[in-house]
Design a protein around this nucleic acid. Structure first.
Lengths: 124, 124
DNA sequence: CAGCATCCTACGGGATACTG
DNA sequence: CAGTATCCCGTAGGATGCTG
């Protein structure tokens, strides 16, 4: 992967975006892989809108999730660059989670999926 | 990227579209569930654009997939209303697969995901 | 509070063989 | 050609307990 960029905010030129059937499928697949996981979407929707939540906040917000699963999904999304983890070194510990810029950028894509799902009834 | 549908555009009334965090997450989850499956996206991208393909066409187009998997993913998408299965009663058998209207409507949503994925390098 | 470590099970999905 | 039918395995993810 090309990791040559450094702090280039707004790329003036868009990507070539030449997708073959396979590369497009592959691209969407890798995108979906980042979202796969029993709890990622719930977490995501709780963080959308710039919300900053502590681990315990998320636990309370999502009662059905276990600690193991919560931390696992958060860590994966952190590793994937979707979620930012902020550690406040203090006792008792305090760790906060929020979305990265890229994570926020997911919103329209998920909206598109919702819109598609809503079409089901109309379109039959 | 709105596609101008030549046919039906009948929305008796726009959906309320009032999503809570949970219902939105749930909605996207169920949408994603329809797309989960090792081969669904590859199949989808081969059927986009109104392509009508026989079972054997798909087998040839996707060499890595096994018959069991191919039929399984196709059947699931058929059941979900994404794919249409057309059986020609003749010997030897001939079965064709294409997308339903709703299946075609997936295109913009997947595009949105691709766009998001492409943002990764630009952002941060 | 914010986690890590184990154990365990359901199931998605691969390989292979058979059939109308 | 267009599928079934079995067998098998890796892993996502649940339950439970411990810790800095």
């Amino acid at each position: 992967m090309t990791r040559t960029d450094k702090k280039v905010r707004h790329s003036p030129k868009g990507k070539p975006k030449a997708y073959t059937r396979e590369s497009a499928a592959e691209g969407v697949e890798t995108a979906l892989k980042l979202l796969e996981g029993r709890w990622k979407l719930v977490i995501l929707f709780h963080l959308f809108g710039g919300n900053v939540l502590r681990f315990s906040d998320l636990e309370r917000a999502i009662p059905a999730v276990s600690q193991k699963m919560l931390i696992q999904q958060l860590r994966q999304m952190e590793r994937d660059g979707i979620v930012r983890r902020i550690v406040h070194h203090q006792v008792p510990p305090k760790v906060e989670y929020c979305l990265t810029e890229w994570g926020q950028a997911l919103c329209p894509a998920l909206d598109a999926l919702l819109t598609w799902a809503a079409l089901r009834d109309d379109l039959q």
